[in-house]
Deep mutational scan, measured.
Amino acid sequence: EVTIKANLIFANGSTQTAEFKGTFEKATSEAYAYADTLKKDNGEYTVDVADKGYTLNAKFAG
C-alpha cells in the first residue's frame, strides 16, 4: 500500500491537502478523480508530479 498526497492549489490562493491510499494505480486514480469533482466550481487544473509520482500538485485555474 502506498499513499499519494494531493496538494490542491486554488485560484484564490487557498490550498487543501488530501491523501489517497491503496496500490499506486488506485491511489493515483482516486486523486485525479477527486480533482475532477472540484473542476465544476474551481475550473480546469494542471498537475505537476513530484516525489516520483507520490505527490501531485494540482493548480486550479479558477
Rank of each mutant, 00 (worst) to 15 (best):
E1D: 11
E1R: 08
E1A: 10
E1S: 11
E1I: 14
V2A: 06
V2I: 10
V2Y: 05
T3F: 06
T3G: 03
T3W: 06
I4K: 00
I4E: 00
I4Q: 00
I4N: 00
K5F: 10
K5W: 09
A6W: 07
A6N: 03
N7H: 12
N7C: 13
N7R: 06
L8M: 13
L8Y: 15
L8D: 00
I9M: 11
I9E: 08
I9Q: 08
I9S: 08
I9C: 11
F10I: 03
F10D: 01
F10E: 00
F10K: 02
F10P: 00
F10C: 06
A11V: 09
A11N: 08
N12M: 04
N12L: 04
N12F: 05
N12C: 10
N12K: 02
G13I: 02
S14K: 14
S14A: 12
S14R: 11
S14W: 12
T15N: 07
T15V: 14
T15C: 14
T15R: 11
T15D: 04
T15E: 07
T15F: 12
T15L: 11
Q16E: 13
Q16V: 13
Q16L: 14
Q16A: 12
Q16T: 12
Q16F: 14
T17P: 03
T17D: 05
T17H: 11
A18M: 15
A18V: 15
A18W: 13
E19W: 15
E19N: 09
E19L: 14
F20G: 00
F20D: 01
F20I: 01
F20E: 02
K21F: 13
K21H: 14
K21W: 10
K21N: 08
K21C: 11
K21Q: 10
G22D: 05
T23H: 07
T23N: 08
T23Q: 07
F24N: 04
F24P: 05
F24S: 04
F24Q: 05
F24H: 05
F24G: 02
E25A: 11
E25I: 10
K26V: 11
A27Q: 00
A27N: 02
A27I: 03
T28D: 03
T28P: 01
S29P: 00
S29A: 15
S29N: 13
E30Q: 12
E30K: 09
E30W: 07
E30G: 05
E30V: 05
A31N: 00
A31T: 01
A31P: 00
A31G: 02
Y32P: 01
Y32K: 06
A33M: 09
A33G: 07
A33F: 08
Y34W: 15
Y34Q: 00
Y34H: 06
Y34T: 02
D36C: 07
D36Q: 07
D36F: 02
T37R: 12
T37H: 10
T37M: 14
T37L: 13
L38V: 05
L38S: 04
L38F: 15
K39V: 15
K39A: 12
K39Q: 07
K39E: 05
K40N: 10
K40Y: 10
K40H: 12
K40M: 10
K40I: 12
D41E: 14
D41F: 12
D41M: 12
D41K: 10
D41A: 12
D41V: 12
N42K: 10
N42G: 06
N42C: 15
N42T: 01
N42R: 10
G43I: 01
E44V: 09
E44P: 14
E44R: 07
E44N: 11
E44L: 10
E44Q: 10
E44K: 07
Y45W: 05
T46W: 10
T46N: 06
T46G: 04
T46Y: 09
V47R: 01
V47A: 05
V47I: 14
V47K: 02
V47H: 03
V47W: 08
V47P: 03
D48R: 08
D48Q: 13
D48K: 10
D48N: 10
V49H: 07
V49N: 05
V49F: 12
V49S: 09
V49A: 07
V49E: 07
V49K: 08
V49Q: 06
A50K: 11
A50E: 12
A50W: 09
A50G: 09
A50Y: 10
D51H: 04
D51C: 07
K52A: 14
K52T: 08
G53W: 01
G53S: 03
G53V: 02
G53K: 01
G53H: 01
G53L: 00
Y54T: 07
Y54L: 14
Y54W: 07
Y54N: 06
Y54P: 02
Y54F: 14
Y54Q: 06
T55C: 07
T55G: 03
T55S: 06
T55D: 04
T55Q: 07
L56C: 06
L56E: 04
L56Q: 03
L56A: 03
N57Y: 12
N57W: 10
N57R: 03
N57F: 11
A58I: 15
A58K: 02
A58D: 05
K59V: 15
K59Q: 13
K59A: 10
K59N: 12
F60L: 00
F60V: 02
A61L: 14
A61Q: 14
A61T: 13
A61W: 14
A61K: 13
A61E: 14
G62E: 07
G62N: 08
G62R: 04
